[in-house]
């Protein structure tokens, strides 16, 4: 057994195990995504980074060594985790409204853990397929509103009015959202009217998309 210190807490673990086991034993958590215990530990997502004696290493792969001082939370680590998570999101085309994994999505969980509001209300909305309000032609703003409200309105059949504000990075959802509205033939003018209710100023990008939707119709 080797002794390591996780955020100052002393724990004993068998030699050679990955740091994450020591961290969990000490009662701390680090965000993980690609790591699947005993099945996949290639350390590719770099979200579980921790500091070991001042060096940035992935907790899921890096083995413990005797007397190692492990830090799981710091400003620096937080920056790297957020940065890497955002990089991951930048290649992820959000389509929560039609995603099968929406009820068990590690990305969503992580986004909540890291407090990054980059997902739409659809990720929390139980309505899918033909039940989806957009599919019914309603001007629902769910696909472009930041999640976190448990989708109370749409659960009860009321189209989302966007009271929580829009998602900040339009790069993430612009294409898929336009496809969605166009596919179901949602009225652009109605959409714009709905959006004006809470968003006294529409950011240029949103305005453009909404007007494109209404023009195409």
């Amino acid at each position: 057994m080797v002794k390591v210190y996780v955020n100052g807490v002393e724990v004993e673990v068998p030699p050679g195990v990955p740091i994450i086991e020591a961290v969990e034993k000490a009662g701390y958590r680090v965000p993980v995504l690609c790591y699947l215990n005993d099945f996949f530990s290639e350390a590719t997502c770099r979200l579980c980074v921790v500091l070991v004696n001042g060096r940035v290493v992935p907790a899921c792969k890096f083995p413990v060594s005797d007397g190692a001082k492990i830090v799981t939370e710091s400003r620096e680590l937080d920056t790297y985790r957020r940065m890497n998570f955002q990089l991951l999101l930048s290649t992820h085309r959000i389509k929560c409204w039609s995603c099968l994994r929406k009820t068990s999505c590690s990305l969503l969980d992580l986004s909540k853990q890291l407090n990054l509001g980059e997902f739409p209300v659809c990720s929390e909305c139980p309505l899918t397929g033909d039940d989806c309000l957009v599919a019914k032609g309603e001007p629902c703003l769910g696909p472009l509103t930041a999640a976190g409200c448990s989708a109370e309105c749409t659960r009860n059949g009321v189209p989302c009015l966007g009271c929580r504000g829009y998602i900040e990075d339009p790069e993430l959802w612009r294409d898929s959202m336009r496809d969605l509205y166009e596919k179901h033939g949602v009225d652009g003018e109605k959409l714009e009217a709905a959006a004006k209710f809470f968003w006294s100023f529409l950011p240029g990008e949103l305005k453009k998309i909404i007007s494109e939707v209404s023009r195409d119709k």
């Binding site: 590719t44 997502c45 770099r46 940065m83 890497n84 990089l87 991951l88 930048s90 290649t91």
Partner: peptide
């Protein structure tokens, strides 16, 4: 293309 920072970060 194995790890995320290098694969996506360098693209950005």
């Amino acid at each position: 293309g194995k790890c995320l920072p290098c694969r996506v970060g360098m693209r950005h």
